[in-house]
Simulated scan of single mutants.
Amino acid sequence: MKIFVALISAAVSLLAIEPIVTAQWLNEHKNDTNLRIIEVSEGDLYGLEHIPNAAHTTIAKWRFDNGTFLSIRPVADIEKEISALGIDSTTDVVLYAPINDPKDVLKTSYIYWALNYHGIKNVALLDGGLKTWKNGKLELTQAEPTIKPTAFKASIDSAKIADITYVKNHLGKLPMIDARPSDMYLGVTPTPTVKRNGHIKGGMSYSWNYSVDKEYMLKPKTMLESVFKEGYSLDKNKEVLVYCTGGLETSFNYFVLSGVLGYKNVRLYDASMKEWGNHDDTPMSQYRYEMFKK
């Protein structure tokens, strides 16, 4: 009987949470023992009000200034934060933010990617963030949950990240998607903190915000499927590399492709243009849209 129960528990833990959840779903499951709700916010927003049972984190606990640009923190730092949040490899995680600025959405998608990269697979975003919860007149609290830390050890998935050498070696060999606004991709508008204007040679343009409406609700999955299959000729079973200015914008494209649409091999260039565009010898293009042709 004990073996049977153990097998059932293992099977349940393998059932992945949907990558985007509604406020109604989260309200129904907020007390699930295997679910950890995480608010990503700055300042005192979390203390003023948050979803019941939600723990709290900030983007600074996942990214740091490495002296040149912001990047993912060392593995030991990430393990410490994941453990403090009560998460292990079997936990279902829902991330949300009080969306007062577009970057608030991107902070949740970046942590979504960071969790995947460190071996946490069952992760979701709350569609529309805290606003959809409030619109549903659902309960809010100031009470902080009691969290039992885990002894989490990362299982790094190196296929989810790229460095500058990897990008150089794969130019023209795989599709690359730039998540910045199209004017910055084209180079007609400078990208702040980036010396050279334009985009990685051969990169395609798809601004991350094309995937959401004005309330930051995800657009229909069927439309997104068509965009990337018909418009960008992507193959779900082949690798695609995503990048932006410095890791945040592109994390939403990672979320849509890898999470919502189920692309098998999406690799994020964390340093992105803050590295590539500040080198003098990296291949770049300007003033034209490009499509991947191998």
Rank of each mutant, 00 (worst) to 15 (best):
K236V: 03
N265F: 03
L15M: 12
L15R: 14
Y206L: 12
R180H: 06
R73E: 08
L35F: 08
V260L: 13
S9P: 00
P283I: 07
G198A: 07
G262Q: 06
H56Q: 10
Y46I: 04
I38E: 00
Y216W: 10
S182R: 10
S226T: 15
Y206R: 14
H50S: 08
L85P: 13
P181V: 14
A162W: 02
G262A: 05
N53A: 08
R267I: 13
L224R: 06
Y287C: 05
W133D: 01
W25M: 02
Y289N: 15
Y210M: 08
I17P: 00
G203F: 11
L48E: 12
I38H: 00
N169G: 04
G86Y: 07
D163A: 10
L126M: 04
I164G: 13
K121E: 15
K168I: 00
W25D: 06
G203W: 09
G203H: 07
S41Y: 02
V167W: 06
G259I: 01
K137W: 09
V256Y: 08
Q286G: 03
K264A: 12
I8W: 12
T108A: 10
K168N: 08
E49I: 01
A54T: 05
Y254N: 02
L95V: 03
M217P: 00
I82P: 12
K160D: 00
S182T: 11
V5L: 15
G67I: 09
V242T: 12
M291T: 13
L174M: 15
L138K: 11
Y289L: 15
G187D: 09
I177S: 09
V188W: 07
W62S: 04
V242C: 04
F292W: 10
S71M: 13
D157Y: 01
T222G: 00
I99G: 00
P190C: 06
I17W: 03
D183I: 10
T191H: 03
F4W: 12
D88Y: 09
Q24Y: 06
L7R: 13
T193P: 00
S258E: 11
P181H: 10
L268G: 02
E225Q: 15
S207D: 07
Y206S: 05
S13F: 11
D235L: 09
K134P: 01
Y287I: 07
D92K: 15
K30V: 10
I59D: 02
G247R: 04
E49W: 02
Y117T: 05
M291S: 15
T165Q: 14
N31V: 01
M223L: 14
Q24V: 12
V21T: 08
L241V: 15
L218P: 02
D101L: 02
D280S: 12
L35E: 11
D281K: 04
A6R: 14
K61A: 11
N209K: 03
F4E: 12
L261D: 06
H29I: 01
A84W: 04
D280T: 10
A16P: 00
S233C: 04
F252H: 14
K168E: 12
M176V: 09
K294W: 04
T90A: 14
